[in-house]
Amino acid sequence: MKKLLLLLATLAVLTACSAHTLVVADLDLLSFAQGTEGLEGDLTVPGSMQVYIPDADDNLATPDGGELISDLPTLDELHGLGIDVVADVENTGSGPLDLQADFRLAPASDSSNIYDGAGDTSLTNTSLHLEAGASGQVHLEAHLQKGDPALDLVTGDGFRVGVELRVNGSSTIHYQITGFHVVLEQRPFDLIPEP
């Protein structure tokens, strides 16, 4: 009786759902940022430097806990995870620049540094060479499916994300983050208990 009531209760939630239905939470993290602080700016690169986005400790140049994502009903039994980060960059100085961007995923408990490889992991990275006066786009995109070990970092308590940007060269750069989406996918049928 209890199992059947549990099944009926679950089916009530799943009305309009099927085995192939995915519930997708598309999080627009950029919209939660306060103003343009940290999302757009100019940096003087003295030879090499790293910046960490989003800036959780009011210092772009120091690694931190990134953005904590929690309190979402789709976090249990996650079926997939997607990320999509886009940044426009322009070399406004006189020398060439090399950029490397690394997207990090970490458990909710890794609140101090999600860029040190201790408990956290790299989901995707890209690189870009910019001559003086040139502009380009940094695009980080990744998609994890159920079964990927990195998905184990996402629990009911949440998870953390962030981007490490390494710049080499002597010049100045103008950057603007134009998109920061995290997509969580859940198959509601994964929640149905076995009889």
Partner: peptide
């Protein structure tokens, strides 16, 4: 009949929108 393949919750600072994919 077949249920939708996707139910999408668009979460932003403006609120939550729910669409069928």
């Amino acid at each position: 009949p077949s249920s939708p393949d996707k139910i999408v919750l668009h979460v932003s600072a403006d609120g939550v929108q729910i669409t069928d994919g």
